[in-house]
Simulated assay, not measured.
Amino acid sequence: MSVQPHVPDVENDSLEDRLYTVKYEDPGESHLDVTLPGLCAERCTTYDCVSVCPAGVWRKGNEGVPEIAYENCLECGSCRWACPHGNVEWSYPGTGSGVTYKKG
């Protein structure tokens, strides 16, 4: 018989509350893009960049090309690894801009 460890009752902030604490300094231009928009429209059926993004930055667009709200980006890089076609362009925003986390 295995003994289950005691799990303390801890109340954590919701995901939305934690995302609200993230400060973003807008660099004025997106650090995210797709390399070949036609590739998304022609070959992508799963939109993994959309489903993996924890902040809802990537959204399925009307013509099959994702729409990008880069201002919400958490800079986790998940979108570039999720795309099975390697079609995501991702870089850190310029120095002095981007995400500042209040809570880890």
Rank of each mutant, 00 (worst) to 15 (best):
M1I: 12
S2K: 14
S2M: 12
V3G: 08
V3C: 08
V3R: 12
Q4M: 14
P5Y: 07
V7R: 15
V7H: 12
V7Y: 12
V10P: 08
N12M: 13
N12A: 14
N12W: 15
S14Y: 14
S14K: 11
S14L: 10
S14I: 11
D17L: 10
R18T: 02
L19Y: 07
Y20H: 12
T21V: 05
T21P: 01
V22Y: 05
V22W: 05
V22C: 06
K23Y: 08
K23N: 02
Y24M: 00
Y24V: 04
E25S: 06
D26H: 09
P27Y: 13
G28K: 04
E29R: 11
S30H: 11
H31C: 03
H31D: 09
H31M: 11
H31W: 15
L32F: 05
D33W: 12
D33L: 08
V34F: 08
V34N: 08
T35A: 13
L36V: 15
G38T: 07
L39A: 08
C40L: 02
C40K: 02
A41Q: 13
E42A: 13
E42R: 10
R43G: 07
C44V: 02
C44F: 05
T46Y: 06
D48S: 14
V50Y: 01
C53L: 01
C53M: 03
A55K: 02
V57M: 01
W58D: 03
R59H: 09
K60L: 04
K60V: 05
K60D: 01
K60S: 04
G61D: 11
G64Q: 06
G64L: 03
G64D: 02
G64N: 03
V65Y: 09
V65S: 08
V65D: 02
E67C: 10
E67N: 13
E67W: 10
I68W: 05
Y70Q: 07
Y70R: 06
E71K: 14
E71V: 13
N72S: 09
C73G: 03
L74Q: 07
E75D: 10
C76T: 08
S78N: 10
S78W: 06
C79M: 05
R80C: 05
R80H: 09
A82Q: 06
P84M: 02
H85K: 06
H85R: 07
G86F: 08
E89N: 13
E89L: 14
W90T: 04
W90Q: 02
W90R: 04
S91P: 02
Y92C: 01
P93T: 00
T95V: 11
S97Y: 13
G98F: 03
V99Q: 01
T100R: 04
T100N: 02
T100G: 01
Y101G: 00
Y101I: 00
K103F: 06
G104D: 11
G104A: 11
G104I: 07
G104T: 10
